[in-house]
Design a protein around this nucleic acid. Structure first.
Lengths: 343, 343
DNA sequence: TTGTAAGCGTTATCAA
DNA sequence: TTGATAACGCTTACAA
């Protein structure tokens, strides 16, 4: 009943353990006949090598990890499959690991690198403030992907990064709404660290208003509720519901994520407000679902596929060619759909 | 530069490695002063224990794993956080592992059990046909959660399970639509193994029609496209688009997942058909987003939270109390919302 | 309360 | 082409 090990396989085959190991790892220096025999014994006896033992001993695990902040971020999920594809091309295995909202991504990375002997890391999303020292301990190349939240004080040679310019893209959306005649634009954002993605997008909104000579009004800046999951449908809904009670003059609501915008849409519907006739509604990210709701959602589409591919390119350049750290910024695309209108 | 190990920590502290290990694992038989000193040295030197080595040696890793089929299933993602909560109560750690569409869940489980010395497994979703022998090799208790697709030939003492009766619930939805006056009801389903969840739901649909004396018509049974991701927005959309071209008489479309129903909704909108005035639309699962689209989606709500909790209860009963295998079936709830109407 | 030493199941080294 | 054997970094008897 106790699990079978490489020693048992060796004994059954009448060979040494190293020969079994060679068969297992496709080493060239083994007689094809012996290898086939060993492989068939392995199959018959359902032997499965212990990965902990392998990782412990092995020096060259051709593997990288993608550490994703949060578990149900549609935008990230759409990117992951692109990363897996790129990784496969390089014959590396990709360890996917989700880190909870309260966990520290860098701690998780540090642990994982030791455990699996990883050669590189991708951080998908997340915050990196007050973490420079820990990041320095990460002795493998890493790329911050779609994680705008890196303090400018960090050395640019510490890491690579790929993202959109969140402030600029948010400016683009706000500017568009203003040009459509909207002056009272509410924004749904998440209060956070200065360099968090949400705060960058808030700054873009504020700057666009200022550039158009429109005062930035406190009562139109709707912070999400800390007691509800961040960036969720529920949060967008709750915030908007509260806002609408106050009857503040407003012709457009811009949520800094599509999912929250969809949540806001429900609150609008419940209050009898039609989109876009009574209220324009806009999001950010460009997740698939935004194109499927009714009316479909005007948004800033991040080029997820490009970002994913470039992320892997930078990572493998650093791993394989010892390339320097690089910082790529992609443009987002303003996608105008049915949820906004000119007034 | 090379990574620091427990030996280094021991050397720096001037103690033996076992003492460091004791400090690390909160063993009671250690002098609090030595422990504090060791802990501070660990912190200063950023020592992180190697999990592979720990797993290899440790016999009693209080850990279970949840193996999830697919990465962006909203319904599963909503359940996972409930499972994590239950697990925390038992002071077990929960290893979350996603298995791709082409991978075999049981193989992944077998590997993971060895690697992490797991005490139990939850399979969330997936198919288990032609896998009985492999499942038998899994020498830890496991629960199939929301995985209706178990051949009836399998021994009931092999595993526990928690789910809804997919055929019955699907019957419930179809019966409801019929009672609303719909006779030409199209169903969007996925062709698959006889016992797959999708086929069970299809059978419920067929049985309801028959029971009402309505013929089951081939041209109203819309199989998803194999070239598009299964259960996706895109698939629901594509299938519906094709269907509408054919101008087949029909007053209701029932998709066996909410996400596909939402996809179908877009195709309807594009063809100028209003929901529910021109076409009723229904889904299955009861994911959050269904309550946020416009009109909100009529669906069968699976009690995800209850299922998650019961799954963990059964698993821990088996692990801790050596309880027998059990098979629980929960009722789904017909949630009537704005997307369907009486004709 | 602490230290020594024996594994855990592999892979890597080296000699045969 | 093979087989002993020494690591890998940790936990845990057992001895002190």
């Amino acid at each position: 009943m106790s699990e079978i090990t490489i020693k048992d396989v060796a004994r059954i085959c009448g060979v040494g353990v190293s020969t079994v190991s060679r068969a297992l790892n496709n080493h060239p220096d083994i007689n094809p006949e012996t290898r086939d025999k060993i492989l068939s014994v392995i199959k018959e006896n359902n032997y499965i090598p212990n990965n902990s033992a392998r990782n412990l001993k092995r020096q060259d695990a051709k593997a990288i990890a993608v550490l994703v902040k949060g578990i149900d971020n549609s935008f990230f999920n759409e990117m992951i499959k692109d990363m897996e594809a790129e990784c496969k091309k390089k014959k590396y295995s990709l360890v996917l690991h989700h880190v909870g909202f309260m966990e520290d991504q860098v701690d998780a990375a540090l642990e994982l690198v030791k455990e699996k002997r990883l050669r590189g890391i991708v951080f998908l999303g997340g915050y990196f403030e007050n973490n420079e020292k820990k990041l320095e301990q990460l002795h493998v190349p890493f790329v911050l992907s779609t994680a705008g939240a890196v303090p400018t004080s960090y050395s640019r040679n510490l890491y690579s990064s790929v993202c959109v310019d969140d402030e600029k893209e948010s400016y683009k959306m706000t500017d568009y709404l203003i040009r459509q005649g909207h002056h009272n634009i509410a924004i749904i954002y998440e209060k956070g660290m200065t360099e968090s993605i949400s705060m960058l997008r808030l700054r873009g909104y504020q700057r666009a208003l200022s550039d158009h000579g429109i005062p930035v009004r406190e009562e139109l800046m709707l912070a999400t509720r800390p007691d509800i999951k961040d960036f969720s449908l529920e949060n967008g809904y709750a915030v908007t519901k509260d806002f609408l009670q106050k009857k503040i003059e407003c012709t457009a609501i811009y949520a800094i994520s599509d999912i929250m915008a969809i949540g806001a849409g429900k609150a609008l519907a419940e209050e009898g407000l039609r989109v876009p006739e009574d209220m324009s509604l806009a999001g950010f990210d460009g997740v698939n679902i935004g194109g499927y709701v009714n009316p479909s959602l005007t948004t800033i589409k991040q080029p997820g596929e490009k970002i994913a591919q470039e992320t892997m390119k930078l990572l493998f350049d650093m791993i394989l060619k010892k390339a320097e750290c690089q910082h790529k910024i992609f443009d987002g695309e303003l996608v105008v759909r049915g949820s906004t209108r000119c007034i």
